[in-house]
Design a binder for these strands. Structure first.
Lengths: 190, 190
DNA sequence: GTCTATAATTTGATAGAC
DNA sequence: GTCTATCAAATTATAGAC
């Protein structure tokens, strides 16, 4: 079901994703994208007729990338659950440390009510899938805990830590969240 | 040091704040604001010549509102620390439940690198002041804990919970964060 | 796939009358 | 303080040639 894109379309998606992560949906313009990838804006419209199409494509591709790098969620022990949760943390860590930006759906999630409906739907889908992955990881290796609540809280904390880190140009907020969550998880899982 | 605004200027600030909370800085336009408050766009420019002026004013006023409603931070016991932290939680709760939107600096914080520099500075100031208030609340009533880390983590979690709640139209993410944080705080303060 | 050309709209912003 | 009038620039988007 994964759509494939030509190299140029991928360049466009890369640029669009960067801009959306910096300033939100309105921060991407067809002309700017075109200039950045070395074509004219009409060519960008050829690949993605409407801006909502572009938004959907960016979010879908992003969701696939993330789920792929998360890998299989199933765990067979509490030790493995912790390993899976470390992967989740790593996703956010990579986003923040790699680009000094908030992650895509952290940005677009805040703007949900402002987005074209199909884009908002993709953003919702991202959150459902990431939370689903996390729940599966927890409940498969630690069946007696409230996997849904733990997943929700971890995603909340990691996302907010990224936002605070970007807002203040101080990544220690993320370090604190990571440390605190790991300790909290090991006290919570049993 | 608090600037005062005419009733019309306040209406403009109210409308601008709403739009910024929905879709970020770019989601407010002078014409839309003007229509909403019943004047022409030139009149909005009279009150706030540049868009950055408007942004600064919105964030400054917001910061003052929040700090005023937080009240005095000093606590004389762990019980009082918990009361102060409940007020902090209440700020975010009110923002989410009152308007179904993320709080202002949650939105603008993510966009920090995209904002006009003076606006970004005001957003940074918001975070410093709210974190400072929280640190004072904790350290005054519970001197032996790491107030800075607790403050950072609470703000991260509350903000991320709001984002997740807005992105998924599901406020239970906030309820979970609130519950979890309260339990975590009572285990952490001693 | 990419281009030129262009349309229709919106944007931030200013000058000057009332 | 608000208005009319206007501007230059930027925006999304389309038609049609190559």
């Amino acid at each position: 079901m994964t759509k494939t894109y030509s190299p140029k379309a991928q360049e466009i998606l890369d640029a669009a994703e960067r801009h959306m992560r910096s300033g939100g949906f309105d921060a991407v313009s067809f002309r700017d994208l075109a200039t950045e990838v070395g074509v004219k804006s009409a060519s960008v419209h050829y690949h993605f007729p409407q801006k909502a199409d572009l938004g959907e494509a960016v979010v879908s591709r992003y969701t696939e990338k993330i789920l792929e790098s998360l890998g299989e969620p199933e765990a067979t022990s509490i030790y493995e659950v912790r390993q899976r949760l470390d992967r989740l943390i790593g996703i956010y860590r990579t986003a923040l440390y790699g680009d000094d930006k908030v992650c895509l759906c952290c940005m677009l999630g805040s703007e949900a009510s402002y987005l074209p409906e199909p884009v908002a739907a993709k953003v919702l889908s991202f959150f459902m899938q990431v939370k689903g992955w996390t729940e599966t990881a927890i409940s498969s290796g630690a069946p007696s805990v409230d996997a849904s609540a733990i997943a929700s809280f971890m995603i909340s904390s990691l996302q907010g830590a990224m936002t605070q880190a970007v807002a203040t140009s101080d990544k220690s907020h993320f370090e604190i969240a990571e440390q605190t969550l790991k300790l909290w998880v090991s006290n919570t899982l049993k």
